[in-house]
Amino acid sequence: MAFKKLLGALVAATMLTAPAFAAGYPERQITMVVPFSAGGPTDTVARLVAEKMSSDLGQQIVVENVGGAGGTLGAGQVAKAEADGYTVLLHHIGMATSATLYRNLAYDTLNAFEYVGLVTEVPMVVVARKDFEPADFNAFKDYVKANGDKLTLANAGIGAASHLCGMLLMQALETPLVTVPYKGTGPAMTDLLGGQTDIMCDQTTNTTQQIQGGTIKAYAVTTPERLPLFPDLPTAKESGLDSLEFAIWHGIYTPKGTPAEVNERLSKALQAALADGGVIKAMADLGTAPSPAEDATPAALKAKLEAEITRWKPVIDAAGTYAD
């Protein structure tokens, strides 16, 4: 009977996928959930490190894109997944901001995950259309303060890096601008290139090529130190805007209850991936660098997440825009 055979096959197959134990971890393929669509900047970071982590672990890591609702759907899915180390989450700063931006999250951000480590921190650049008047960042500050009501600030939608950075910028300059939201970075950048909007603040991953091509004008970076990529750009901090220090950090998480040794093993693989020449080069091209080994650890990521939730709550509450 075909059915009996099939049943036999089913049983046999399920035996093969018996629960895994940490001892020989990893024994099978690992799924890395990226809570954004394929091809986006976060997906790119994930695929870069997943490949190198696979070779260190000796098991394939496959990237699964579970996009939607600002990354909260994918995160929610991992929060509910089995804590066996075969489902991991790669998420960015949105992990911390969504705790405030979304008032009805399906999971408790601080209590639903274990930590593997930080992956990279992508710096932000304050940019404007290429014929924007001010010559440097000091002139920019004065100009924006004087003309705030005439200027437009583009962002890529609620919760996007450019939205968060825009909020910080307006707060630091104490000047509200007319914000123009877009669906994603692509259209927002197109309108900035076309001079339809005035100012944007976005990750180097999206802005570097345009700045180098002279199609947009860069004013400042949001890192503590100047970037080797743009040695002439001042940091916001050295120009007196202390609060505009900000990067899009990425971290890897596992579901709550994942054994500590599994997280340690993944963290070791992450450190190996981040030390890889190819990864360093690819990240440098995007204007960023891998997190140092001491940050690619569970403790560092946990501290980062807690600190960032505390940091963003008042900023988001002050802006009064929520995503649900």
Binding site: L10, T14, T17, A18, P19, T31, V62, V63, E64
Partner: peptide, 14 residues
């Protein structure tokens, strides 16, 4: 194609 679907899920593990 190596799509990241689990062939047999947690309900079938015993």
């Amino acid at each position: 194609l190596g799509l990241p679907f689990r062939r047999f899920g947690p309900w079938l593990q015993f």
